[in-house]
Amino acid sequence: MENSKVNFNQDRFSAYLKPCSQGLKASVPIAVGYIPIAITFGLVAKSSGIPDHIALLMSFIVFAGASQFVGVNLIALGTNPWEIILTTFILNLRHFLMTASLSLRIDPSVSRTWRFLIAFGVTDETFTVASLQKDKTLSPFFITSLNMLAFLAWNAGTWAGIFLASGLPASLQASMGIALYAMFIGLLVPSLKESRPILLVVLISIAINSVLFWIPLSAGLSAGWRIILSTVLAALTAAMIFPAGIGGDKNE
């Protein structure tokens, strides 16, 4: 009796408590990066004359950084609603690629309900942190707790920005703008050291994105389209050169 109870608790621990705590731990750098940006979002929304409940609702149901800033800006300019929605769609279309990639890491037996929940929390940051985990299959408990803490930080930051105004000194707030980029670097650099195919795909993607960013021909391209184009072209090229995937050069 005693023994089976212990086993049951251990099973339960490894089935969901452990992935939950790992997810929360992995999410801390995202939360740290989100808070100052969300505070800024709250401030910007307030100073643009957007009603508080609209800005709060945006963080609660849209949960996508860049498009919320653009959305508030376009609303303040009195842009046509359909144009705002279309712009948001284009900016966030890249998440289609991300969840397509993420679907490979989720066990086929994971239910639809889980998938509806997981999908809501996918952002650039939660996706990259989840994807760069070593485990081949990711527990839905892990992904959801990772997404959830990021979501809470984003919403808490929005509230703080709207109701408390800026508590952080402006200079520190500016420097914190680099937080999520530093997190991306922290995720990426160790993988660059391990795999030549990864190094190649990253260099190609940076090169294409830089060209699109700096040449006048593509100046009208939104950030959303630039990231989609760079990602698709770089990943296609890498998949053609290294058909064995990210571990490709080791097997040859």
């Binding site: 890249r94 690629l97 991300m98 397509a100 990639s101 679907s103 490979l104 650039d124 996706f127 990259t128 994807s131 760069l132 980029y181 991306f184 670097i185 995720l187 990426l188 993988s191 195919p197 990864i198 795909v201 990253v202 260099l203 190609i204 993607s205 940076i206 294409i208 994105n209 830089s210 960013f213 700096w214 630039r226 990231i227 760079s230 990602t231 698709v232 770089a234 990943a235 296609l236 890498a238 998949a239 290294f242 058909p243 064995a244 995937g245 990210i246």
Partner: peptide, 17 residues
């Protein structure tokens, strides 16, 4: 294979410039 490369390509494009 393409989708396996996506996270790394996304990271590159997100970071720079």
């Amino acid at each position: 294979t393409f989708l396996q490369f996506v996270p790394f390509a996304v990271l590159g494009a997100l970071i720079f410039p």
